[in-house]
Amino acid sequence: MPSLNPYLSFKNQAREAMTFYQSVFGGELDISTFGQFEGMVQDPAEADLVMHSQLTTPDGFVLMAADTPTGMTWQQPAGVSVSVSGDDEAPLQGFWHKLADGGTVTMPFDTPPWGGRFGMLTDRFGIDWMVAVNAPQQ
């Protein structure tokens, strides 16, 4: 069965960001660097940059990321948000608080007109997030 996974691009912050996301969501984090693979390092100063990382959480989330080496164009992410939602408010509230630490809240985590809870923020790494607690079904 195919899967759809967010893949985040960073400029020299992938390891720090993915370690942060592991502290938010828990789970196993695997990191491969450019230096681990022959022929992948163009600038020796970038050998320890993240070529690929994958966080797999106990909730079944899979989040991937990499650093963009100097020879490639990097742009700050824009126009895309990572969404985390569900029925259990306690863990979602916890994710919200951890993601907001050092970030910027753009819409407080509160009760929207459609019910449940919802909020939007940009985390300390410039990634936009939406966190939602589903409205109870009538």
Rank of each mutant, 00 (worst) to 15 (best):
E46N: 09
M130E: 10
V50Y: 01
D101I: 09
V133D: 11
G86S: 10
V50Q: 05
V62I: 14
D110K: 13
W96K: 06
G71R: 13
Q22E: 12
D43M: 08
M18G: 01
T70V: 13
G35K: 10
M107F: 03
D128G: 08
S23D: 13
L49W: 12
G103E: 05
V50K: 08
M64R: 04
S9V: 00
L92H: 01
A100E: 10
N12V: 07
Q54D: 12
F20A: 12
F109N: 04
I31N: 11
F61W: 06
R117N: 07
F37M: 15
G119D: 09
L29I: 06
P112R: 12
L99S: 05
G94S: 14
T56Y: 02
Q42T: 14
P69W: 11
S9D: 02
V62K: 06
F10D: 06
P113A: 07
M72D: 00
R15P: 02
Y7D: 03
Q138A: 14
P69Y: 12
N12S: 15
L92S: 03
S32C: 04
G86C: 08
F34I: 10
V62H: 06
A135W: 03
L121C: 01
A17T: 02
A135Y: 02
M72V: 01
F25Y: 05
A132Q: 14
T104D: 02
I127H: 06
V105N: 00
S85A: 15
G71C: 09
N5L: 07
E38N: 13
D30G: 14
W129P: 01
Q75A: 15
S81D: 04
A65G: 14
A135R: 06
V133K: 08
T111N: 05
L55V: 08
T111P: 08
G94W: 04
P113V: 00
V41R: 05
V62R: 06
P91R: 07
T57V: 07
G71A: 15
T70C: 09
W129E: 00
E46P: 11
K98W: 03
V105W: 11
F25K: 09
P91K: 12
Q137T: 13
L99H: 01
E46V: 12
T106H: 00
D123Q: 07
L55K: 04
S85T: 12
L4N: 09
D67M: 07
G94Q: 13
F118P: 05
L4V: 15
F20R: 04
L99M: 11
L29P: 02
M72Q: 15
T33Y: 00
D48A: 15
D123M: 01
H97E: 14
W96A: 01
G102H: 07
T73P: 08
M51Y: 11
D59G: 13
D123H: 07
D43L: 04
